[in-house]
Nucleic acid binder design. Sequence first.
DNA 1: CGGCAATAGATGTTTCTACATTAAATGTAT
DNA 2: ATACATTTAATGTAGAAACATCTATTGCCG
Lengths: 152, 152
Amino acid sequence: MSIETDIKQKKFRSPFQKLALNLVYTTKWLEYKQLESFKEHDITPQQYNVLRILRGQQGNPIKVSDITERMLDKSSNTSRLVDKLLAKNLAKRTSCESDRRAVDVVITEEGLELLNVLDPFIEDWENRFNIISEAEAEQISALLDKLRENED
Amino acid sequence: MSIETDIKQKKFRSPFQKLALNLVYTTKWLEYKQLESFKEHDITPQQYNVLRILRGQQGNPIKVSDITERMLDKSSNTSRLVDKLLAKNLAKRTSCESDRRAVDVVITEEGLELLNVLDPFIEDWENRFNIISEAEAEQISALLDKLRENED
DNA sequence: CGGCAATAGATGTTTCTACATTAAATGTAT
DNA sequence: ATACATTTAATGTAGAAACATCTATTGCCG
């Protein structure tokens, strides 16, 4: 359904305003869809994001601050997210020897297993994006990157 | 900066996964930018969204449930958002005569003034989207609409 | 009409987010 | 080396979101 119909707004100030609204609206829609898969497994999107970053380390420990750098939402409180993963035995935390302020985090076997269970669900809805072509997906990604260039 | 650099992830499962992550990341970036303008005026993005919907009614009252339908985030608690606007004298609430369950909401003069103050800020960052062409903006919007088609 | 489901909106509760503050460890400049 | 700033992570707190429940009103069907 078009964004015009979805939010019942016929006119937009400009194609840029329309795009801004559409980005927010589409992302909310997407996050909502993901949420449905996640909550069955008692995990939040943010916790999932951290778990995936941990898996990406392939066994190597990673500091809390480095996790934050890789997160989609950099303003989130990584410390407390890691707490949640610890409480569920999905991650382990050990103090870092080279810098005793820092804390090393590693994914556990149980964490890897949970990701294995979740993977097919996530892939499933990613594959729904097949409705557009791979080239179109790449093109949007490139344009989104461009939008964020204006950093001021 | 490219999404690869921003979240320090070199490879993606597919262009679709990359797009999904980029959508979430870009929207967070965009919402953060907006937030900066809003908080100076003691208003949240959601409250702003409601105010704009009220202005769009051009003086006609609108029911709470109809506001929800037009919102970007349909899962938000419109009732309490309207409460906040009332407390700041930005909106008025009267009970609807034809249906006594319903409540009519109208924007106040003060609400309109606040929007007038905010408009240039919002337009400013929307105009930063000028870095891509109007045609490209329209094209992304159309593709986003398409992505949401798969409703299941 | 009477009963019951559906709708509109308010409210309660738990969890999360955003932001500030704290505490410890490290880096740096004199 | 000492003093001070910076970094790293944890924690405190107010406010907001998410989700369920409640109350009042309306619609509908026998």
